[in-house]
Design a protein around this nucleic acid. Structure first.
Lengths: 254, 254
DNA sequence: TGCATCTGTTCGCTATCGCCGAACAGTAAC
DNA sequence: GTTACTGTTCGGCGATAGCGAACAGATGCA
């Protein structure tokens, strides 16, 4: 707990830190929280009992866990984007058609957030899940999105966030990245070749409004073992782009 | 803002009240919040800037709105029930088959919470949505759930929550309600005949573990106009019960 | 263009209330 | 039945959350 900016309310910061701790540690009690944050048991108890009486955490077998009330907030936040309802059936279909994992992403504060994710028959497990965030520069969805952003916003991303190396395939050179983005613009789709996770690739396309503004992106993940082998990249990309177009139409007339 | 129990942290209560306000009012600014809670602008600003810097609310066109970070909490809470992944495809199929609205519910603190909801072709719009909560006593999902709860917990529900009247069809007499629950047990499914919303009916079945413990429930909503008319109740109920059984099997082997 | 009126932000001051530590009370373990 | 954990309650101190006023942008209207 370092200084933190002034005018901020500490107990609120603490409460959310505790919530994140409960989430990530798969349940915690008073003592756990007191130890984890080096506060007294009474303080931890105060936060936990407040959150519990508000229903944001629930007691399950003596450990507090994240309550379902957050579902409503999450769902509400998602519905703002007017994308979920339109994109869900397309993503499901794409996953079924390809047998792989398919995801829908939007961007908030320059972070990619998966608002939907669905798995086909042979999809491999990854760390991506609904609500999870990822870098934009090393994902197919992220690059699809960045490519259709105004130039100044792309530059703002490069400056404020940068190109952190995730694997040895991550593009970290700004100039090369601009070229990559240019390629995405020309081709209308993005590729991620093990740039975020070794062995995992993805192909994505932006979801645009009719005016050409980018709302989010859709992608299909394919493990390297199936690339060249069983997967026809051109056909897959065509399917993805078609889905993206359908979603555009659906969001327009709804 | 009345007294509230001691040992509770007020600023945390306030912050969550503000979050709920932002959610329900579709966006709010510093002045809105200050007015709504009769606090000074600086206080409102403190809460909002804290929440914003944590990323839990985001500035959209000068109004704060709920951030997507809650999606991760919601998704996490839902995944605890090990029901969503197994039930989603069944619900989708049921909605497609019947053309109506289908929902999956679990219970937290004696409140029914929809963890999934999907609409068929001719489904009518209702107020139910993912994360939304409903009474147990006047819904098909709720009655399905209560029927498979141990007797003492059912009695605890009647005592602690009670049978509030929602429409003139709501069962409000405890003795009649116990009979209704007995009927659900015998038949293995529950009916809601305009007991929560005028004109809306639903048919539901419990989702059980192999040991017979109730995990949640699944239901299909049908407007009164289509009952008797186009919908064959017996067939519909059979489909729902079959889906519930499939979900049980899926949750067991996953 | 200028005035008026919104918005959000910053800054001391004060009283509140969040935090602490110790004592207490349940509960599981052995 | 004793031990060693849990979580809970209780004063007391001191940090801090909240207030109000003053400031600063933004927007709108004439």
């Amino acid at each position: 707990m370092t200084a933190s900016s002034p005018g901020q309310i500490q107990s609120v910061q603490t409460t959310f830190a505790i919530l994140e701790y409960i989430r990530d540690s798969e349940g915690a009690g008073v003592t756990d929280v007191a130890d984890a944050f080096s506060v007294s048991k009474s303080t931890a108890h105060g936060h936990l009992s407040t959150l519990a009486s508000l229903g944001y955490i629930v007691d399950v077998d003596g450990k507090y866990r994240i309550g379902l009330q957050f579902l409503e907030f999450g769902h509400h936040a998602r519905s703002r984007y007017n994308l979920y309802e339109a994109a869900k059936p397309e993503a499901d279909q794409l996953a079924q058609l390809t047998g792989e994992r398919c995801q829908i992403m939007v961007v908030e504060d320059f972070r990619g957030v998966y608002i939907y994710q669905t798995a086909g028959e042979q999809a491999v497990q990854t760390d991506s899940h609904i609500g999870g965030t990822v870098d934009l520069h090393c994902t197919a969805v992220g690059k699809s999105y960045l490519a259709y952003l105004p130039d100044n916003e792309l530059e703002a991303y490069l400056e404020q966030v940068g190109l952190d190396e995730r694997t040895k395939h991550t593009i970290t050179d700004p100039e090369k990245f601009r070229e990559e983005i240019e390629r995405v613009r020309e081709q209308g789709y993005a590729r991620n070749l093990e740039e975020r996770i070794e062995g995992m690739n993805a192909f994505g396309a932006p979801i645009l409004t009719e005016d050409g503004e980018v709302l989010g992106a859709i992608s299909v993940s394919v493990p390297t073992t199936r690339i060249d082998d069983s997967v026809d990249e051109n056909e897959l990309v065509e399917q993805i782009r078609r889905s993206a177009r359908v979603i555009t139409i659906r969001t327009t007339y709804s």
